[in-house]
Every structure is written in C-alpha cells, then in structure tokens.
Design a protein around this nucleic acid. Sequence first.
DNA 1: CCGGCGTTTTGGACCGCTCCAACAGCGGCC
DNA 2: GGCCGCTGTTGGAGCGGTCCAAAACGCCGG
Lengths: 335, 335
Amino acid sequence: MRAPTIRDVAARAGVSKSLVSLVLRGSGSVRPEKRQAVLAAVEELGYRPNAAARSLSERRTRTVGVLLDDLRNPWFVDLLDGLTERLHDAGLRVLLGDGRLDERLGEDLTRTFTELRVDGVVAVGTLQDPQALRAAAGRVPVVVAGAREPELPGVDVVTGDDELGARLATEHLIRLGHRRIAHITGRGAVGALRRRGFETAMRAHGLADAALVENGDLTEEGGHRAAVRLLGRTPRPTAVFAANDITCVGALSAAAESGLAVPRELSLVGYDNTSLARLRHLSLTTVDPSGHEVGLRAARRLLDRIQDPDRPGTVELTRPVLRERGSTAPPAASR
Amino acid sequence: MRAPTIRDVAARAGVSKSLVSLVLRGSGSVRPEKRQAVLAAVEELGYRPNAAARSLSERRTRTVGVLLDDLRNPWFVDLLDGLTERLHDAGLRVLLGDGRLDERLGEDLTRTFTELRVDGVVAVGTLQDPQALRAAAGRVPVVVAGAREPELPGVDVVTGDDELGARLATEHLIRLGHRRIAHITGRGAVGALRRRGFETAMRAHGLADAALVENGDLTEEGGHRAAVRLLGRTPRPTAVFAANDITCVGALSAAAESGLAVPRELSLVGYDNTSLARLRHLSLTTVDPSGHEVGLRAARRLLDRIQDPDRPGTVELTRPVLRERGSTAPPAASR
DNA sequence: CCGGCGTTTTGGACCGCTCCAACAGCGGCC
DNA sequence: GGCCGCTGTTGGAGCGGTCCAAAACGCCGG
C-alpha cells in the first residue's frame, strides 16, 4: 500500500498525468470540469506530491537552508520569524540545520544542504567555520544574517548596526547623567563594533578619560568576573554597558554580591533584548537589534540573489532601538 | 556549468555509473584500484550526490523530521542534542521544522515533512494540534518526545516522569522542614501530572491540609500573579513549587516585591532546569528532566519503529533529577 | 465540407540515482 | 576442452514528477 502517485490520481480522474500536473501547478488553461475531477481525485486518494521527484525534474527544490550557529542563543528566534515569514510568502520551504552539530561530527557544515540542493542558504549568527561558507557561496546563493565577519565575495550580509546600538546605549547613560561609565566587551567582529560604538560616544561627549573597559566573553561568568574587577576600582563606575544581555546578568549578580542596588547605585545596559532582559525580576535596559527586521531583509536579499546570483555582495545594517527598563537611572550622586 | 552527476564521475574514472554507485555506497566487492579511481574523480569534480535523486530511487530519504512546538522554549535543546546524536549515528539526517509556523499559516503541521517523505517524525513538546499527528502516524513512524498528551495508537511517547519529578521537588521542600507548601500549576497533561506529584507527596507526608494550589499558565506573568495571591494568604506558605522555571521566576519577582528574602523567608523550586535556573543571579533549585536522555531514548524508539512500523505504541518515562541551588533553604521559623 | 487557428490534452523524454538481471573473466575440476 | 561457480562490472528499467512538441478538439469562415 504505497503512497498514491500522480498516475494514480490521473487514472482516478480519467485524465492523463500531464493534466494532473497542470492542475496541481495551477495552470489557467484547464477546463473547469476537468480541474474539479482532478482535485476530487487528489482529495479522495489523499495524494501528496513527492518533493524529491518534483525537485529532481524541476532542478530546484523551493527550499532554503537556514544554518543556526547555536540553538541555545535565543536572539535568533525573532530573526527566524522574519526570515521564514517572507520566504514562505515567496513559496519557499525553510529547513533548519544546527551548525554546531555538523561541525561536531567533523562534517562540512553545509554538506546536508548541498546534497539536498537547497536553492539558498542563510547563515544565522557567527559560524565557527567561515571557510565552509566560502565554499558554499560558489554553488548556491548565501546570505549571512545577524553577524558580520565573513565579508566574502558574492555573499550578502544583513545585520543590526552594532556600532550605532552601542552608541545609543552609551548616550542613554550619558544623558542620565553618568560620567564614569564602563564597558564589558564581547568577542569577534561584533564585539569590536560594540566597543567602538561605546568609545566613540564617550569621546564625542568628552568623556574619553572616564571610560573603562574590561574584557568579557559573552558569558554570564565572564560578565561576572569583569564586573567584580570593575567594582573594585576607585572611583567606581556608576554605569556599565555590557556587550550582551547574558554578560549583563553576570554583572548584575556581581552588583548584588557587592551590596550595590541596581539601578540606584549602579546602572546596567545589555544588548540583544533577549527574553532574559524582559524578565521582570531582571528588567534590563537593553539594545534591541530588531531581529525581525533583520530577518525580513535577509529574506529579501536572498530572494534577490536567487534571481541574480552574480550580483556583488552587499552589507545592510538595520537600526537598533534602545529599550529602557528598570536597570538604568540617574547616578546616585546627581540626584 | 551544472553540478557534476554520477555519470560525469564515471566518465572521468573510466568506469560505468553503476560502479560509481557501488563505491559511493561502500560495497565491498570492488577492485581497490577502481575504487581509488572513482574516489579520485569524485574529489576532482567536487561531486556531491543528489539527495532527491537518491531518495527517489531508494524510496527512502534517510531523513527524520523533528517538529518543534516552540523555538523560544529552551528546554528542547538538550533533548535535541540527544536525539540528533543517535539518529546521526544511525545514518539519518535530521531536519528541524517549526510547528507554530506551519500552524500560523493554516497548513497541515506535517505537510512539509509528508511531501519530503521523511522516514520518521519526532514531535518535540506539546503540539497545538494533535490531530495532525494522528494523520501523520498512519503514514510514517511517529514518536512524541517531551510531552504526553497524544496517546495515539502506533505512536511512541518518551518523556520525563513528571509526576515523579514533582514528588522529588516537593519532598525536597518537606525534608528541609517546610510544611505549608504551595504549588503553581502548569497546563495540559504535563501540568496535571506535576500537580498530582505535588499532591501525592503532600498527602504521603500527612500534609494534605497544608497544601495550597494556585493556577499558573507556564508564563512569568502567570507565575507572578499566582505568587502575589499566595503571598497574600495567612498564614503564608514558606515554600512554592512552580510548574516550570519561568513561572518560578515570576514568583521570585513577586517575592522580591513583597520584600521577602529568597531562600531565607521563602523557598522556591522550578522545573525543567533551563538556562534560566542556572543563572547565578536567580540560581533556582529545579527539577532536571534529563532532556538528553529523553532525546537518546526517543531516537532509539524511532529507529525501532522504522524497523517495525506496526508494533504497538509505548510510553517510556525517564527519571528526573533534582538540582539543588540557591532558592531553597529550611524555613525561617525552624532555624 | 474543408482548412485554419486557438485552446486543451497527451505521450514520451528526461532529471540523477539505485537496483537487478545478466554478462565478462578467470580458475579449478572432471 | 567444456562446464561450473565466483568475483567484478555493466546496461537498462524504474522511482515520480515536469516539460515540451505534437495531437486532438472545437469553432469559424469560405
């Protein structure tokens, strides 16, 4: 008892398989009564087209592979929402792949997608092995979303403007009246940009001397350690801008251990607007990289590139938004 | 310039396409020198088999579809790790699908997977529409992991023993000396089981009268509201067991607002051992449903069912583990 | 009644792979 | 020498769709 094929449907409807194919693909030039007969047969038999057969003969899969670098990072979900929304509208199916998994197995990150002959690949976030992307980019349209590093030829990049976001965060603190402001860094290209945004803002307000920087590693632990070092300095910073929310939570726990009240005695700003920041118990002021928007635009880019694979690579930055919550306030002294 | 096919490889290696196929599938009866020639040609041409063509002729895809109910729920990641680990070992590719997405589009949850003719489906978590699963179960092996509801014929269920986990949590509180203990409920079948575990444990220790129950909805907001109601009662409970970590965080913020110190004046236990619970700033005692183990076993079940699709459905429960952290302590009175 | 033309419908080639029956070679044995 | 059996190898028939050239149909004007 095998799944019905297009021929079974044809037999049942009393037409040729070609006609069935036409109906299924929505051709206009089919007599209405035949169309009805075909659709009825499809319904009765519970027919579902075989994607493998279709893509074999169509020489395209109508499928886009999305490579995630880390499922544990929640920020990608908004991005994914935007991405799938638009790709679905364009009639493309979306398949998720766990980048770290393939890597752990020592396989080419994009091997599965290559074998499936996906029509395009979206790499979400910073991948461990940009080399694999370079190879893939030769064969299939590739867009990087939510990360900047691999500026590869023929690859589009869509991500939040990290430097601007960092500037927004820093200026928010300055506007509140803070002067002695610290930054806990991230890593990689994104980390560098956020740091630069911080330093640019401080310099622009003549606060270059009041700027402190400690290294973090985008983990809670790293944030905690960096904050402990920062809070040990004299004079103590009155505000900290952390490279991401997780780091910020680490800093928050360090503040609690030092008996410092947040935001009264110490203001904190994170980055990414993860669900973490929204927890009322944490309520972090943070920079929202507007992942949904990034996803929408990445989809747009991919669709364009599928149309015209040879266009030069582009870099598109979306404008982040500051979300003010309960972890920032004017410094105690200036009250 | 199309992707090379098996015929191109054959021509280059000076053999027939059948021989190439044999080599690629690892047949033993191929002369070593020919094998080398084929592999060299594969390498030189950068040949990758076409999955669609292969599965069309093999009549199987070596692919398993994993249906996630909610990417924002982090607990599924551990499960996924275990699942993919074993499925990969068995030579199966894993494709992730976002259940909510398809549902939002009004499409059959499993439509994509059906069209792709996946060899099996794993539904992770509680799906909105169990009906879709029932339909799928007729066509393809289906295993439900991390949820219990749909006890459908011919479907295996693998999940944590929620009732036991709830009992462990409750008994932990009782052992610490708590008597007046509250439970904030979850939803659905899982919620019912965790509640039953709580009530069973209370009754077993003669504390049925000291048990309080408030309804939650598995969200932070719901946890907060329920906790506010609980803390308003007199006498106040000294400990709360929440149906999941998120709910527990909501309760934590309610405690903070009431000026109650955790764990000194109020002990809290969550469920799921999400990354949330591990944050040092929250440090929730929680029940670890051992998702990795659930994933491994779900994979095992699926592989068995692929072998023998007609075996009756089974229910397999894994043993959860209590993770003691900083949100529980003996009650203030008994110190 | 026939030819011409636009609309529908159809058979068959083909997409890239696997599977299988059949075949080529090659000793060994009677 | 002929036959058998074994190891390697091969061509061709599918798998289930799409696509296209050609056939069938219907209608009209001459």
